[in-house]
């Protein structure tokens, strides 16, 4: 394990059994939501994980934090393989590893007050001795996030989406974590509110030296906030690149198409742009195509692409791609 890496993921797999009917065996068909992926995250950096429906990006996040138990592979967090920890041991690690969810309406328990929500993690991990101390800490965090500490006794439904997302962030920060997995944290919010939350993320990172794994379908946003971007497609990593290169020098045909699909708010640029329109839909997770998973939609498909799955190989410093076009 390298010194700078706070997280290393090695050959992580997560398969979900498909069950139909009561007595069906669980050994039958599997959805390969995440299929053998490896990547590292450096301390204090932000790694973006981008992909479309069925790419497995959410599963990656949830498997790292052990909401799902991995089928295979290692997740090394600060030197410990957390994939093999017991539930009890894992709960201790969760003090340093936190998660923010997508839906600010569903991720806060509607029956608890803001104070109860933000102090719950402190109670679980026995931080601070008295209720009063915990309340003061909660008020301090709310203030830090631009929320009024006087609102501690209010309920989540009394707040707007952006405010709720801040409350979710406050809950994660309550235990002073080092690593936060952000699963589509702004996609349910309006654009003007998205910018507020993204800036808060950036400020907190500078202040507390936080590390983020930022999961999103929005390539422009991922590129903006991340130092490094991982592109996933149907459970596999297609490309890993420094965020600047992901738009300037995309290598994988899928990354190129993804870039081209993101609209730019500028009619002049938009009319001049060369468009790559992908044919067809994303293949199903159950009947994966043989060889490269992207081959049915790729315009460069060669014979080998249909036979063998390409390896993720480094082509230049910090830039890896899984495509035979760069692997002759």
């Amino acid at each position: 394990m390298s010194e700078d890496n706070i997280l290393e993921v090695h050959n992580l797999k997560k398969y979900f059994p498909i069950r139909s009917g009561i007595f069906a065996s669980t050994k039958g068909v599997m959805v390969k939501a995440v299929d053998d992926i490896s990547f590292n995250v450096k301390r204090g950096e932000t790694v973006g994980l981008v992909g479309e429906t069925g790419s497995g990006k959410t599963t990656v996040g949830r498997t790292i934090i052990r909401l799902y138990d991995p089928t295979e592979g290692q997740v090394i967090f600060e030197g410990i393989d957390i994939a093999s920890l017991s539930e009890k041991e894992m709960n201790k690690v969760r003090r340093r590893l936190q998660m923010i969810f997508q839906d600010p309406y569903a991720s806060l328990d509607p029956r608890l007050t803001v104070e109860e929500i933000v102090t719950e993690p402190m109670e679980i991990h026995n931080l601070y001795n008295t209720k009063q101390e915990r309340r003061e800490r909660a008020a301090y965090i709310l203030n830090l996030l631009g929320l009024n500490p006087e609102h501690l006794s209010r309920f989540p439904h009394e707040f707007s989406g952006g405010q709720r997302q801040r409350i979710g962030l406050a809950r994660a920060l309550a235990v002073e974590p080092e690593f936060i997995i952000c699963d589509e944290p702004v996609s349910a919010l309006d654009v003007s509110i998205q910018a507020q939350i993204i800036n808060t993320f950036e400020d907190l990172q500078d202040e507390f030296n936080l590390t983020y794994l930022f999961i999103s379908h929005d390539l422009a946003m991922v590129k903006h906030i991340s130092d490094e971007v991982i592109v996933m497609y149907l459970g596999k990593i297609m490309e890993i690149a420094p965020s600047k290169e992901i738009y300037d020098k995309p290598l994988h045909p899928y990354t190129q198409a993804l870039n081209s699909a993101v609209p730019i708010p500028d009619p002049v640029v938009e009319k001049k742009r060369e468009r790559i329109i992908l044919e067809g839909d994303i293949s199903s997770n159950i009947n994966l195509p043989t060889g490269c998973r992207f081959n049915p939609r790729c315009k460069y498909t060669m014979n080998i692409c249909k036979e063998k799955e390409p390896q993720l190989l480094e082509v230049s410093a910090g830039h890896k791609v899984a495509c035979y076009l760069y692997n002759k």
């Binding site: 707007s160 952006g162 654009v191 509110i193 590129k223 903006h224 993101v262």
Partner: peptide
């Protein structure tokens, strides 16, 4: 307030305060 994918250098998003 929206990041542009073709933006060269990284800069802070500007926000609209309030609701």
């Amino acid at each position: 307030s929206v990041p542009r994918i073709d933006q060269e250098e990284k800069e802070k998003l500007s926000t609209i305060a309030g609701l």
